[in-house]
Nucleic acid binder design. Structure first.
Length: 495
RNA sequence: GGUUACGUGGCCGAGAGGCUAGGCUCAGCUCUGCAAAAGCUGCUACAGCGGUUCGAAUCCGCUCGUAACCUCCA
């Protein structure tokens, strides 16, 4: 197993060589969505990022347990003290049972993940399914003296924690600075200290989602579910924890505090944060109301878009930007991505049908070296903190070679068997298995062969009227014909 | 206000002290019944101003601009 994979660790602000705690096993936890409304594209970007991380680790030979939670309770709506959670609020608005909301948006979320070709996590635990585990963690934290109960709510005691640990180690915040900037909450809070955060909240009379606990009826705080579930499925310390950049503080900082408060050990070895997706230069988020839903993008039913863009086009667009950079979404960028994606798929089709020569008669050292260099650059890119942009650049370079082979501008017999296989395997494996980019097949399916045959015949007999008609038909299915010296084939229309 | 990032060619977007990223667009060429596809060629940049260095887009400082976090968010 190649151990030179480097991961940028938010904790140390450096790229570090990845060494799993219990190789060949890797434990990875990613903060999943809150299912009180549709996933938006920003969520999709983050989950796609970690999908590629999981895929690449598996490609490297690791056995990955990928845990991504579903938050179906607990995120407070406005002020901490309003004591109402998001799921509950939305339920009342729509006159639905909370779990009905949860169900609807969970199903919707899964559909989008499938459309984007994200592999389902190994375990997808829900917060409501782990109330007991959460209560257990809270009890441990109280027993260690890092939490206190007030009127049926339990708060994490940040000042007590600070005596032994560094609250702020992940986000780089210092507590003094935090305090001077914490907004006053109208003195309504039960908290002893403004930086303290809720582990358990007492439920008011009107609160729908509620569970019995040692402190009375209530519901878990925002951060505790991830601590409880990651510990349960991955252990007290595990390898990778991922999430959006916006979760770094306070969510992930709190997770560290909760874990250390409960069992002292640092919970995570490598913290990874995916950067934000912006729309018109602004973060796309539910609360700002400037988010485009995946479905709107796939159907083109959003005023900010001139047309529909397929799930794979979106995935390609995501991967063209490194995950730690912000990405500004625009109609133009998507259009460019669509063409690029189809070009990559045409290359994929070409490389799959490329026949391995029976003899390699005229090895061209320069060409062979070039192909090896490209393949190396792809792996090097992915090894360098999952740089999918570099990997894609390499794949395009490879695609160029492949079309030259296909069009007879270069001959595969100029290679060696090893190079030929490397080229083919690299293109296919990286594109499909690691980057998760697959063909979006045309709706005519098996008819393509017939169409192609007719076209070839018409060309042969110089029946140009028929040729043009067939071209027209193909175009209507998003395909074009290619006339090469070596033969006739079809390709995805890159429009 | 505090903190942290970022500012790359017509557009998107990698890289990060010397070595062509890549995609899209545009112009031209080869090929072609015409096209398309493919290939080739051209346009070739690092916000501004200083500094460090033999050498800076890359390091340092300042200025301007943008964003994120500090409050629910992926």
């Amino acid at each position: 197993m190649d151990s030179s994979l480097k991961i940028y660790n938010t904790l140390t602000r450096k790229k570090e060589i990845f060494e799993p705690l219990h190789a060949p096993h890797v434990g990875m936890y990613v903060c999943g969505p809150t299912v009180y409304s549709d996933v938006h594209l920003g969520n999709c970007r983050t989950f796609t990022t970690f999908d590629v991380v999981a895929r690449y680790l598996r490609y490297m030979g690791y056995k990955v347990r990928y845990v991504r939670n579903i938050t179906d309770v607990g995120h407070l709506v406005d002020d901490v003290d309003e004591g109402e959670d998001k799921i509950g609020k939305r339920a009342k608005l729509e006159n639905l049972e909370p779990m009905e909301i949860v169900q609807r948006y969970t199903v919707g979320f899964h559909l989008v993940m499938q459309q984007l070709n994200n592999i389902a996590p190994s375990i997808e635990p829900t917060a409501t399914g782990h109330i007991i585990e959460q209560i257990n963690v809270i009890e441990k934290i109280i027993a260690k003296g890092y939490a206190y109960e007030v009127g049926g709510s339990v708060y994490f005691d940040v000042p007590a924690y600070l005596k032994k640990y560094n609250y702020g180690e992940l986000s780089g915040r210092v507590i003094e600075e935090l305090l001077s900037n914490t907004r006053e909450l109208d003195g309504q809070s039960d908290k002893k200290h403004p930086a303290d955060f809720a582990l358990w909240k007492a439920a008011g009379a009107a609160h729908i989602m509620r569970w019995p606990s040692p402190w009375g009826e209530g519901f878990p705080g925002w951060h505790i579910e991830c601590s409880a579930m990651s510990t349960k499925y991955l252990g007290k310390t595990f390898d990778i924890h991922g999430g959006g950049m916006d979760l770094q503080f306070p969510h992930h900082e709190c997770e560290i505090a909760q874990a250390r408060g409960a069992h002292e050990d640092a919970p995570v070895r490598y913290w990874m944060h995916a950067n934000m997706l912006t729309m018109n230069g602004q973060k796309m988020s539910k609360s700002l109301g400037n988010s485009i839903l995946p479905e709107e993008l796939f159907t083109g039913s959003n005023p900010l878009l001139s047309q529909a863009f397929s799930p794979m086009t979106l995935r390609f667009a995501f991967l063209q930007t490194h995950y730690r950079s912000t990405m500004d979404l625009s109609n133009e960028a998507l259009k460019a991505a669509q063409i690029g994606y189809k070009k990559l798929m045409n290359g994929l089709r070409n490389v799959k049908v490329l026949e391995k020569p029976t003899e390699f008669v005229a090895p061209d050292e320069k060409l062979i070296a070039e192909i090896h260099k490209i393949c190396d650059s792809i792996v090097a890119g992915l090894h360098d903190d999952f740089n999918t942009a570099i990997a894609l650049a390499g794949l395009f370079n490879l695609a160029k070679k492949v079309s030259q082979f296909q069009a007879g501008q270069l001959l595969t017999s100029q290679l060696t068997a090893e190079t030929f296989e490397l080229m083919q395997a690299t293109y296919m494996n990286i594109t499909e298995n690691v980057l998760g980019l697959c063909e979006e097949k045309p709706s005519i399916g098996g008819m393509v062969t017939h169409l192609l045959k007719d076209y070839a015949e018409a060309k042969q007999t110089k029946n140009f009227e028929k040729v043009d008609a067939l071209r027209h038909v193909a175009k209507s299915f998003g395909l074009v014909f290619k006339d090469m010296k070596t033969g006739i084939d079809w390709a995805y229309d890159e429009v």
